[in-house]
């Protein structure tokens, strides 16, 4: 459970943290360029391959359990 919480907290910090602290002059324009109406679409598109790869990996991990479960004889009541 702890790793899940740690990953979740890291993601929250990354997604809600202010962007581009180092550039005082251009910071408002940079933030406007990041947090615009396309933010959610950009985020989803950008993470799509990562999510797909994660699903493939998790699917392979549970593959043996799933196939052995599906090959079990049907339970009798």
């Amino acid at each position: 459970m702890k790793p899940v919480v740690a990953v979740w907290l890291t993601c929250c910090l990354l997604l809600t943290g202010p962007g581009a602290q180092a550039c005082r002059v251009c910071r408002p324009r940079v933030q406007a360029g990041i947090h615009n109406t396309e933010y959610t679409a950009n985020l989803l598109l950008l993470l799509l391959p990562v999510v797909l790869l994660l699903l493939i990996g998790v699917g392979v991990y549970f593959a043996s359990a799933l196939t052995s479960r599906s090959s079990l004889p049907p339970a009798h009541d």
């Binding site: 890291t10 997604l15 962007g19 581009a20 360029g33 990041i34 950009n42 990562v50």
Partner: peptide, 24 residues
């Protein structure tokens, strides 16, 4: 500079994603 820094932000999000993949 502004466009480069916006791209830098999205590169960071991508790196965060593959970091999570590696940790898992």
């Amino acid at each position: 500079l502004v466009a480069a820094k916006v791209n830098m932000y999205w590169d960071g999000i991508f790196h965060a994603g593959v970091w999570v993949l590696t940790v898992i």
